[in-house]
Amino acid sequence: MTYLLQQVLNALQLGSIYALIALGYTMVYGILTMINFAHGDLFMVGAFFCFLAATFLHLPFVPTLLIAMIGVALLGVLIERFAYKPLRQAPRVSAIITALGVGIFLENFTLVFAPYPQHVPTLIKNTTWVVGGVSISSLQLIIIALSLVLMAFLDFIVRKTMVGMAMRAISWDKAIVPLMGIPLNLVISATFALGTSLGGAAGVMYALAFPVIDPYMGILIGWKAFIAAVVGGIGNIRGAMIGGFILGGVEILVAAFLPSTYRDFVAFTLLLVLLIFRPYGILGKPRPQKV
């Protein structure tokens, strides 16, 4: 029982990181119906911003986090403006290939400056409490709590603010949005900024939890978060959160009870089975035909 509780805690930590990254995929898909395959690499850039701010500027946790989130958001907005926007009328596959190209660019650009794995300094004093046999670290608590706060913040923006309403409107019918007096490009930029900043925050948290980082760290995690977004129902914000936690949970529990090399195999088999029964994901709905 204690062992299980311990694993649940670990699952929440990993799941919240997946969920944050998955949100970036789902938001961009929601408004542009394209998969931003560079998103995993933006997560990696977030981890490197964390490394730079902590190592060279000697900044504490909060400013480091803000620098990484803002830096990645700016990068995300620039990528959209210069790489994706010119392709908005092009076939979707062109945009997707471009996104893959942007990802490869980010990996290799980082590789120039960081040819070896880098060690991220400790930013959060790691205290561990043992409660009823379950050990809880301060880092774990901060990661879970911060992720939940960021997700609640995003949920609030999307549901309650004018910009969030405009984002949802774009996901329904982009062509009509300018007729409401809404500058389409501004809202698309805002969506990229929000989605990628969460990926940047996830990069920081990941770098603190697993402090050895390299330019290729975003690939596998990016794919996994993308799958989490699909499992939750791509385009659906709450779905991405749920998908992230499900994936984190399944991975940790498989590793807890089976040889850990089975982890990805079993986890993804389960997710594939889930998609057979719910092909649009957990919260995804088939889009009603417009008449």
Binding site: M162, R168, A169, W172, A175, L179, M180, L184
Partner: peptide, 30 residues
Amino acid sequence: ADKIVAKGIAQVPEGRGIFGNLTVLENLKL
């Protein structure tokens, strides 16, 4: 297009162009 709306030209588009995933009030508010 968005600035033209601000100049005072409102369009009711063909096929109505309602945002089906937004409430009536949200549609108006936008």
